[in-house]
Amino acid sequence: MPFAPLLAALLVTQVPEPPAEGAIVWQAPPGCPDRAALERAIAGRLGRVPTAQELALVGQIGRTSAGRYHLDLRLTVAGHTQTRALTTRQCAALVDAAALLSALALDPSAAAVDPALPVELEPSPEPPLPDEPIEPDPPAAQTAPPVEPTPPARPEPVDAPEPPPPAVVVDLAELTPSPPPPRRRPGGFLRLSGGFEVGALPRPTAGLDFATGVLWRRARLEFHGVYLGPQTEARGVNSVTVSLFAAGVQGCARLGRARLEFPLCGGFEMGGLRGEGRGPGARTGTGFWTAARVSAGVAWHFHRLLSLNFAVQGLLRLAAARFDLSDPDAPVRLFEPSPVSLRLLLGLEVRLGDPW
Rank of each mutant, 00 (worst) to 15 (best):
A234G: 09
L221I: 11
F245N: 12
A219K: 05
A206E: 13
S193T: 06
G207S: 12
R220F: 06
R235G: 02
R235I: 13
R203H: 04
R217E: 15
A200F: 00
G225Q: 05
V237W: 04
T212L: 12
L244N: 08
L228K: 08
A234C: 08
R185H: 13
S243K: 13
L215W: 00
G213A: 10
N238S: 15
V198A: 13
G236L: 12
L221W: 11
Y227N: 05
G187T: 07
E197K: 00
A219F: 13
P186S: 12
V242F: 00
G199T: 06
E233Y: 00
R191L: 15
E197H: 07
A211N: 12
R203D: 05
E233D: 09
V226I: 14
E197Q: 07
G213M: 10
L208H: 06
D209Q: 13
T212A: 15
V226P: 00
P202C: 00
E233M: 08
L244H: 06
A219N: 05
A219Q: 12
P230W: 02
A246C: 06
F210N: 02
R220D: 15
V198M: 08
E222T: 14
Q231L: 03
H224A: 12
R185P: 14
L244D: 01
L221Y: 06
S239C: 08
L201K: 07
T232F: 03
Q231R: 15
A211C: 10
V237A: 13
P186F: 11
F210T: 11
G195A: 10
A211I: 13
Y227G: 09
A211Q: 15
L244P: 03
S193F: 01
L228Y: 09
R218I: 10
G207C: 11
R217F: 03
S243H: 14
R235M: 04
F189Y: 13
A247Y: 02
S243A: 14
F210M: 09
V226N: 13
G195D: 07
T205W: 01
H224Y: 09
D209Y: 02
V237D: 14
T241V: 01
G199M: 07
L244R: 14
R191I: 04
L228R: 15
E222C: 06
L192D: 07
P204V: 09
F223E: 05
R203N: 04
G194I: 07
L201V: 02
V226M: 10
G199L: 09
D209N: 15
G195L: 05
F196W: 06
L201F: 04
A206W: 12
P202M: 01
P230A: 15
G248L: 03
E197L: 05
A219I: 07
F245D: 11
P186H: 12
R203W: 03
L190Q: 05
D209R: 15
S239N: 09
G225N: 01
R218L: 10
V242Q: 00
F245L: 15
L208N: 04
V237C: 00
L192P: 08
V240K: 01
V240C: 01
A200I: 02
G213K: 04
V214K: 07
S239P: 05
G248D: 03
Y227Q: 05
P204N: 04
Y227K: 06
R218P: 01
H224M: 06
R191C: 14
G187K: 11
G187H: 09
P230D: 07
A200K: 01
F196M: 09
V237T: 14
F210C: 02
S239T: 08
L208A: 15
R185I: 09
G188K: 06
R217I: 05
